[in-house]
Amino acid sequence: MNIFRLLGDLAHLASIFVLIHKIQKTRSCRGISFKTQALYALVFVTRYVDLLYHWISLYNFVMKLFFMASSCYILYLMKFRYRPTHDPSIDTFKIEYLLGPSFFLSLIFNYEFSLTEIMWTFSIYLESVAIFPQLFMLQRTGEAETITTHYLAALGIYRALYLPNWIYRYITQDMVDPIAITAGLVQTGLYLDFFYVYFTKVLHGQKFELPA
């Protein structure tokens, strides 16, 4: 464990608390893409099957459990509790375009052709693009509630902080994980536009609005 990964994990944790807080405070999941949330739930379930057979640490165990449980809880909130506030007509990104390529890439580029390794690799590829439906929705509406932008910023910062973590691990442990690094670069890259608006506008007290 190093400081970058710890802060990254904490940002990830924070993003989930902010999202749940947003839904409960505004009693609405307006502006949140159900598709993106469903993809994250799938990412966690496919990546963390190693919980069943591979013990790493208490920290690792608790975090994995939390991410799986909280992502399912968010799906429950969106699909049942606050269902009327979710508008599927603006959440229209076709997730087949993300699921298909992630699956085929994981069959080709993996560390070992086994079920659990392919699931792990699939989850890495899928996570890197799972934010697409959410960003697409943002693009369509052209604006977002401030609290939603805090959620997205924390989520983006999480994967961005994994980049110095990998550099640190390369230097100190000689560890290179090309699959995670490539996907992490893609994932962080997708946030660059958003980060620009967030850091130049939202953090200066302005509303998140995209230029028309």
Partner: peptide, 10 residues
Amino acid sequence: KDPQNRHDEL
């Protein structure tokens, strides 16, 4: 080379 210790990452 398979970076096995990658599984400690979330």
